[in-house]
Design a protein around this nucleic acid. Structure first.
Lengths: 117, 117
DNA sequence: ATATCATGTAACCTACTGGTTACCTATGAA
DNA sequence: TTCATAGGTAACCAGTAGGTTACATGATAT
């Protein structure tokens, strides 16, 4: 059905609740399902099951990986699918990105020298 | 409804036909609606109106801009919204991109020295 | 052992997305 | 003027995405 694996990634990123979920997992890796629900529900009112279903979409896209510890499931963000998308798009649209490569080089040097921000 | 302008960008990118349309416009800037339909329909069988509706979604997200010349509409890809998304995401997820910054630096130097590929 | 808590499944409902056909408008060509 | 062509609107329809409640399961704490 989804012959293109990028498709599920784009589809997963299309919903604001799922992007928020990724934000939360980036900031708090290893979060449990209930924890993550506590953080997202005030902004996007919905039931715990709603959150669960969004998490499943993210997992099927490979953007979230999880590991069960006892009865809690630890959730982690996985950047690999996004990087795949990025690589393909930059090679295809590279000339449209020319204006930004200097910013990226700057960021790269910041990372190398250990400077934060 | 869409308080976040990034939302419409992500939503627009979520559909494979719309991503294909962007590809076509990157390769053939100034294409007409009918031309673009001729290219996309063999891959994604649908009517001209279907293509038209996808184009509208892309335009509302700012990913496509158009300009009417006589009775034909010239369509162009616009990278600005994608770059906005990219900027916000890299600043937020920068540490997850560390493994790739060297590739990006390499790409940047390729661009500077005018090397293609 | 029992109660509680974290997670998951099932069934269902609503609204919107993605598609269609039919018709309309306006420009360019004969 | 008349015809063909490029584009657009309107109305409609089916499928699925996103949400719910109710219930089930399995691990932990008392």
């Amino acid at each position: 059905m989804k012959q293109d694996p990028m498709n599920s990634v784009f589809a997963a990123l299309a919903h604001p609740v799922r992007r928020r979920l990724l934000d939360i997992l980036v900031g708090m890796p290893g979060c449990s399902v209930n924890d993550v629900a506590k953080y997202v529900v005030p902004q996007f009112p919905m039931s715990r099951i709603g959150v669960l279903k969004h998490l499943r979409v993210l997992e099927e896209a490979g953007l979230v990986v999880s590991q069960k510890q006892g009865r809690v499931r630890e959730l982690y963000f996985n950047a690999a699918p996004i990087q795949l998308v990025y690589d393909r798009w930059t090679s295809q649209y590279s000339r449209f990105w020319a204006a930004h490569v200097n910013d990226i080089k700057f960021l790269a040097e910041q990372e190398e020298t250990g400077h934060e921000r």
